[in-house]
Simulated assay, not measured.
Amino acid sequence: MKKVGITGQNGFVGKHLYNTLGLTPEEFERIDFDKSYFDSEQKLDAFVSQCDVIVHLAAMNRHESQEFIYETNVKLAKNLVASLKRTNSKAHVLFSSSSQEERDNLYGKSKKEGREILANQTRENGGLFSGMIIPNVFGPFGLPNYNSFVATFCYKLTHGEQPVIDNDGEVKLIYVSELVNEIITKIREEKSEDLYEVPHTSVNKVSEVLAKLENYKKLYFEGGEIPQLESKFDYNLFNTFRCYFDVKNHYPVKFTQHTDPRGAFVEVIRLGIGGQCSFSTTVPGITRGNHFHTRKIERFAVIKGKALIQLRKIDTDEVLDFYLDGKDPAYVDMPIWYTHNIKNIGDEELYTIFWINEPYNAEDADTYFVEV
C-alpha cells in the first residue's frame, strides 16, 4: 500500500484525485493535507515524513497581481523542497505544471521554476520525480471564473446568466477524471520523468463548447430530456454540466400527467441515448441504494406510493431530502459523486421506475456503497 499526500487536496483537481484514490483503499492510503501546513515547518515535515508519494498540486493561477502569483507558487515549491531536505524524504514527488511554461508570463515562469527546484531536490534525496505538463482541465465542481471557461459557462447557464466568449480560439482539453487516471498511472509506474506532457483528449473551439452546453440547457435543464451524446467528450461535458444545478431547488421535477376516464399517462424520460430502464416495488419502511456513481446518468421516477429520496455529495455533510408522491408523479436525477437512496415512507407498496444510461456490468459497475 502506498501512502499518498496531495498538496492542494481541497482544490479542483486535488479533490477529484483524493476521492478517486479512496475508491481503492487496499492500494492507497491517503495522508491528509491542509494548506496551513505551508505556514508551519513542524506540520509540513510531519506530513512529508508520512508520504511515499507527494502530488504537488497547490498553486495560485489567478490574481490581479502576476508578481504575487509568481512569488506564491515559487514559495510553495521552495517550502516543500525545504521539508523534503529536512526530513530526508525519498518520496516520489509528482508536480503539476502547465502548458504555459513556455509562454512569456509570470505564471508559466513560476511553474517551470517550481518543477526544476523540486526535480533537483528529489534527485538529491534519492527519490523519484514526475514533472507533468497539463493541458486545460474541465470537469465537475470546478470553480466558475477560476478553474475553467467550461465551469464558468455551466454555472451561468444554470443560474440565469448568459456566457460571453472573449476569445473564440481552439482549446486543448482533458476531463478531470482522465487527468486523475494519468496521475495514478504515474504513481504506479514508479519511475522518474522530469518532463511528461499529459496528452489532451479533445480539441474544441470555445463557441462549439458553448453551443453544446446551450443545447443541454434547453433539452435537459429546462425539458428533462437526456440529449444525444455522440463522443466521450460530449458525455464528460454533459456530466460536468449536470453538476452546476442548484440540486436542492431543482428537484423533484414534476411530470406532465395526461388523464382520461381510463386513468393517467406519464412520459418518464425522453432520450437522445439508450440505456436500461427498470421497475421496482418496495415495501413500507425499506430503503434502497446508499451508493454513488462517478460517471453514470440515473433517474428515479416515483409513480405510486410515497418516497423519500436522499442525496449527499461525497465529502460534505448536507443531506438533501426530496419527498415524492405517486399521486403527483415526479423524478429526481442522481448527480455523479452524490451518494443516494430511496425509502418507502408510505403505508402501501412504492412503485419506482429507474433509468440508467448504461446496462449493468458487474465487472465495471461504477457503483460505490456509502451511507447517505
Rank of each mutant, 00 (worst) to 15 (best):
M1Q: 11
M1F: 08
K3Y: 11
G8L: 01
V13H: 04
V13Q: 01
Y18F: 13
E26L: 14
E27N: 10
E29H: 13
D39H: 02
D52H: 15
V53Y: 04
R62P: 02
E71F: 05
T72Y: 03
R86S: 11
T87G: 06
S89A: 13
V93L: 12
L94V: 03
S98G: 03
L106D: 08
Y107W: 05
R115C: 07
I117D: 14
L118M: 08
N125C: 09
P140D: 03
N145D: 15
F149W: 13
T152K: 08
L157E: 10
H159M: 06
G160C: 07
V164W: 11
V171G: 07
V171Q: 14
L173E: 03
S177I: 03
E178V: 00
I183R: 04
I187V: 10
V198T: 03
H200C: 10
T201M: 05
V209E: 13
F221M: 12
I226F: 12
E230P: 01
K232S: 00
D234S: 02
L237I: 04
L237H: 03
C243A: 07
F245W: 04
D246T: 14
N249E: 12
H250M: 00
T259M: 14
F265A: 09
F265L: 14
F265C: 10
V266R: 10
E267D: 07
R270N: 11
G274E: 07
C277K: 06
F279I: 04
P284Q: 06
G289F: 14
G289N: 08
N290W: 03
H291A: 13
H293R: 09
I303P: 00
K304W: 00
K304T: 02
K304G: 10
I314E: 12
D315Q: 06
L324S: 01
D325T: 02
Y331E: 09
D333T: 12
E348A: 09
W355H: 05
N357H: 13
T367V: 15
